[in-house]
Amino acid sequence: MSQFFDLGDETLWNPSNGAARLFLGQVAVFEAELGMPSGVGPMENDECQIEPAVLEVFANALLARHRQTSHAIIWALSVGFTATLLALAERARVEVRWSPDDGDPDHGLRAKVRELDRRMVR
C-alpha cells in the first residue's frame, strides 16, 4: 500500500504508508513549531492534496529556521524532514528561496534535497 501526495491530478510523491505516516507526523510538529499551516494535507482515502501557495510560505519559513539553528541536536532532528519537505516543495514548483550561490550556506542541504528527490517515488 502507498499514499499519494498530489497537486491537482499530478502525483508529486507516492511513498509507502509508513513513510507517509512519519512525514505527516513531522508536518504536524513543524506546523506547531512555526505556528503556521504547511499546505500539506490532510490525508483522505490515501490521497493528500498540496496547496502550493501555503506550502511556499511554510517551506521558506522552515528553510529560514533551519539556517538560523545553531543547536546541534535540533539541527540533526530537523534536517531530514526539512530536505524532504523542500524536495516536495520543488516538485510542486513553488519558489524556494535558497541563499545566493556565493558562499552558499545551503549547499549541503541542497545536495540532500537533490538526493531525496531522486529517491522519492512518484
Rank of each mutant, 00 (worst) to 15 (best):
T69E: 03
Q49W: 14
G8Q: 01
S2K: 15
V113C: 04
L62I: 13
G18P: 02
A59V: 02
S38E: 07
C48D: 08
D9H: 00
L63I: 02
P37D: 15
Q3W: 12
D117L: 05
A92R: 04
N14M: 08
G103D: 07
F23T: 09
D117F: 13
V29P: 10
A83Y: 09
D104Y: 08
V113D: 03
E33G: 06
L12K: 02
M1H: 13
N14I: 06
L88S: 00
L88N: 00
L77P: 03
G80M: 07
S99N: 09
L77R: 04
A32V: 07
N60I: 07
H71R: 07
V96I: 08
E115C: 14
R118F: 08
R21N: 13
A20R: 09
E33R: 15
W13T: 03
I73V: 15
G25T: 06
L55V: 05
P105A: 14
A59Y: 00
S16G: 08
M43F: 08
P42G: 10
E56R: 09
L34A: 08
N60K: 01
G25R: 00
F4D: 08
V121L: 10
Q49I: 07
A19C: 09
A87R: 03
F4G: 05
S38M: 09
E33W: 15
K112N: 12
H107Q: 05
R118Y: 07
M43T: 14
W75R: 07
E56G: 11
G108N: 15
N45H: 08
A53H: 01
A111R: 13
G25N: 06
A111V: 14
D9Q: 07
F30D: 01
H107G: 01
R97Y: 00
L55Y: 00
S78F: 01
P37Q: 15
L116P: 02
A19Y: 04
R119V: 09
W13Y: 01
A89T: 00
N17I: 06
F30P: 00
R114S: 06
V29G: 13
T69F: 03
H107E: 06
G103K: 05
M120F: 11
T84S: 12
D106H: 08
L24G: 04
D101S: 13
R97F: 00
A89R: 05
L116V: 06
R21I: 09
P42W: 14
E51F: 13
F23V: 10
L77G: 01
E56I: 10
N60E: 00
A19E: 06
R114Y: 01
Q68K: 05
R67Y: 03
M120C: 14
R118M: 12
R119A: 13
D6C: 12
A111H: 15
D101G: 12
L22T: 14
A19S: 07
E10G: 06
V29A: 13
E95G: 09
I73D: 04
C48I: 04
A64D: 13
L24Q: 11
S16F: 02
T69A: 03
F23M: 11
Q49R: 13
F30I: 05
R21M: 14
D46K: 14
S99Y: 04
Q3K: 15
A59P: 02
